[in-house]
């Protein structure tokens, strides 16, 4: 087992999102709308990286928020931040959709991305940003190909097999790279958290 990673304390923004989810769980549609307004651009961005087809990504985004509405009562703020919880639903739903296809058409990865919208970023995302500094420092400390492999799996939802084929390396090697890289990231982040 690994030691628990020290997580950044919740910001006021995250606390607000927790409250909004709690009210949504009680059926407060306005709170849910507020939660959507603060988080949907982020989730849409995450989905689009995995599912570059705009229409498909919109379908998934819709499903994700219907899920959030229905499962708001299950959210446990002691186990995850609201943004992480919602983003995890979005990632998982996108990857499930991707896997449901027989095979993935070669996707033009970057062309599907619009420029970032001008919407103000929710305060809660600052938490993620803080964590991001340490996660990126940790990634930067890895071998470039190792870091790239982790990014490809995480952001594109590629399987080890697909990525190994693309990179021209044996699957076993790739798995090893990625898993070891993540363990090193985790260790580096724990250290950064402990000394912060």
């Amino acid at each position: 087992m690994h030691g628990p990673v020290v997580r950044a304390p919740a910001s006021p923004g995250a606390a607000e999102l927790v409250q909004l989810l709690g009210r949504a769980a009680d059926g407060d549609a306005a709170a849910f709308r507020d939660f959507y307004d603060r988080t949907s651009a982020k989730l849409f961005g995450i989905i689009l990286r995995i599912l570059p087809d705009r229409g498909e990504a919109e379908d998934v985004l819709q499903e994700v928020y219907v899920t959030i509405w229905r499962k708001a009562a299950e959210f446990d703020s002691t186990r995850a931040s609201p943004v992480t919880w919602a983003a995890t639903i979005a990632r998982n739903r996108s990857i499930d959709r991707l896997r449901a296809r027989a095979s993935r058409p070669a996707a033009p990865l970057e062309t599907a991305h619009d420029v970032a919208d001008a919407a103000p970023m929710a305060d809660a995302l600052i938490d993620t940003m803080r964590g991001a500094a340490s996660v990126h420092a940790a990634l930067a400390a890895l071998e470039p190909r190792q870091a790239a492999a982790i990014r490809s799996c995480y952001f594109e939802g590629l399987t080890y097999e697909a990525l190994a084929e693309r990179e021209g390396v044996p699957v076993g090697t790739l798995k090893s790279w990625v898993r070891r890289g993540i363990l090193r990231m985790r260790a580096a982040m724990a250290e950064a958290g402990a000394t912060a």
Binding site: K42, T88, H113, D114, A119, A132
Partner: peptide
Amino acid sequence: DLSPLDATTDPVL
């Protein structure tokens, strides 16, 4: 542990 990676993903309205 992995979720901070999402911070690099640009929001899209």
